[in-house]
Amino acid sequence: MKMAVISEHLGLSWAELARELQFSVEDINRIRVENPNSLLEQSVALLNLWVIREGQNANMENLYTALQSIDRGEIVNMLE
């Protein structure tokens, strides 16, 4: 549920979040190519990849820290 809210509000910031979460330029470009027409779909794809990559370590605290690092703390505030 929280992931959906984050995806809805990320907009163009999804790529900046991807870099903050240590995704490569290739990963970011692949997300763009696979989801060409929708920032929402790109955001969802990023968060899904992050959960798959991090497994047990994919917790909201880590995601909140990354969001705050890219000056998107207002998204965190909405969810708390």
Rank of each mutant, 00 (worst) to 15 (best):
K2T: 08
K2Q: 10
K2H: 07
K2N: 11
K2L: 07
M3Y: 03
M3Q: 09
M3T: 09
A4N: 12
A4W: 05
A4S: 07
A4F: 08
A4C: 06
V5Q: 05
V5A: 08
V5N: 03
V5P: 04
I6S: 11
S7E: 07
S7K: 02
E8K: 14
E8L: 06
E8Q: 14
H9C: 13
H9L: 05
H9V: 03
H9F: 08
H9Q: 14
H9A: 05
H9R: 06
H9W: 08
H9N: 13
L10C: 00
L10V: 08
L10K: 04
G11P: 00
G11E: 15
G11S: 03
G11V: 02
G11L: 05
L12I: 15
L12C: 15
L12Q: 08
S13I: 01
S13V: 04
S13K: 10
S13C: 04
S13D: 15
W14R: 00
W14M: 05
W14T: 02
W14P: 02
A15W: 07
A15R: 10
A15I: 15
A15C: 08
A15H: 08
E16D: 14
E16W: 03
E16V: 12
E16Y: 06
E16C: 07
E16N: 15
E16H: 11
L17S: 01
L17V: 03
L17G: 00
L17C: 02
L17H: 03
A18F: 01
A18N: 03
A18Y: 01
A18M: 01
A18D: 00
A18V: 00
A18R: 03
R19W: 07
E20F: 06
E20N: 11
E20K: 06
L21K: 00
L21V: 05
Q22F: 11
Q22I: 07
F23S: 01
F23L: 05
F23W: 00
F23C: 04
F23Y: 05
F23G: 01
S24N: 06
S24L: 02
S24D: 09
S24A: 08
S24K: 10
V25C: 09
V25D: 12
V25T: 09
V25H: 15
V25I: 10
E26M: 09
E26R: 11
E26F: 06
E26P: 06
E26Y: 14
E26K: 12
E26H: 11
D27S: 10
D27G: 04
D27W: 01
I28L: 04
I28G: 01
I28C: 09
N29E: 12
N29M: 11
N29C: 09
N29H: 06
N29A: 12
N29L: 10
N29T: 13
R30P: 00
R30W: 06
I31R: 03
I31V: 09
I31L: 10
I31N: 00
I31H: 00
I31D: 00
I31G: 00
R32M: 06
R32D: 05
R32W: 07
R32A: 11
R32Q: 10
R32S: 10
V33T: 15
V33W: 11
V33R: 14
E34L: 08
E34N: 10
E34F: 09
N35F: 08
N35W: 08
N35L: 04
N35P: 01
N35S: 13
N35Q: 08
P36I: 05
P36R: 09
P36D: 09
P36Y: 04
P36L: 02
N37M: 08
N37G: 09
N37P: 00
N37S: 12
N37L: 09
S38L: 02
S38R: 05
S38D: 12
S38N: 09
S38E: 04
L39A: 11
L39E: 15
L39M: 11
L39F: 12
L39S: 09
L39P: 14
L39N: 09
L40S: 09
L40K: 15
L40A: 11
E41K: 15
E41N: 15
E41V: 05
E41S: 13
E41M: 07
Q42E: 00
Q42A: 07
Q42W: 02
Q42L: 01
Q42F: 01
S43D: 04
S43W: 02
S43P: 02
V44M: 15
V44F: 15
V44P: 00
V44C: 14
V44K: 15
V44H: 15
V44R: 15
A45E: 13
L46Y: 03
L46R: 00
L46T: 10
L46K: 02
L46V: 09
L46A: 07
L46M: 09
L46D: 00
L47Y: 00
L47F: 02
L47V: 07
L47W: 03
N48F: 01
N48V: 05
N48E: 05
N48M: 04
N48K: 15
N48D: 15
L49T: 08
L49V: 06
L49A: 10
L49F: 09
L49S: 14
L49K: 14
W50T: 01
W50R: 01
W50M: 02
W50S: 02
V51A: 11
V51Q: 15
V51M: 14
V51D: 10
V51K: 15
V51S: 15
V51R: 14
I52V: 11
R53M: 04
R53C: 02
R53G: 04
R53I: 02
R53P: 00
R53T: 03
R53Y: 01
E54Y: 06
E54M: 07
E54A: 04
E54H: 07
E54Q: 10
G55H: 06
G55S: 07
G55K: 03
G55E: 07
G55T: 10
Q56G: 13
Q56M: 12
Q56P: 12
N57K: 10
N57Y: 15
N57E: 15
N57C: 09
A58P: 15
A58Y: 12
N59K: 13
N59Y: 11
N59A: 12
N59W: 06
N59S: 14
M60K: 04
M60F: 15
M60A: 06
M60E: 05
M60H: 15
M60I: 12
M60D: 08
E61A: 15
E61V: 04
E61Q: 15
E61W: 08
N62R: 14
N62K: 14
L63W: 03
L63S: 03
L63F: 03
L63T: 04
L63Q: 11
L63V: 10
Y64C: 08
Y64D: 02
Y64S: 08
T65K: 12
T65Y: 10
T65A: 13
T65F: 11
A66P: 11
A66V: 02
A66L: 00
A66S: 07
L67R: 02
L67S: 01
L67M: 11
L67K: 00
L67N: 01
Q68N: 13
Q68S: 09
Q68I: 11
Q68M: 09
Q68H: 13
Q68L: 13
S69N: 11
S69I: 12
S69R: 13
S69K: 12
I70K: 02
I70E: 02
I70F: 03
D71K: 12
D71Q: 07
D71H: 09
D71C: 10
R72I: 02
R72N: 05
R72Y: 00
R72F: 02
R72Q: 07
R72V: 00
R72G: 04
G73Q: 10
G73A: 09
G73V: 09
G73F: 07
G73P: 08
G73Y: 06
E74T: 02
E74L: 04
E74C: 05
E74F: 02
E74P: 07
E74S: 07
E74R: 03
E74K: 05
I75C: 02
I75H: 03
I75D: 04
I75L: 09
I75M: 08
V76L: 12
V76I: 14
V76C: 12
V76Q: 04
N77W: 13
N77H: 09
M78W: 09
M78V: 14
M78N: 13
M78R: 14
M78I: 14
M78D: 13
L79G: 06
L79V: 15
L79M: 14
L79C: 14
L79F: 06
E80G: 15
E80P: 14
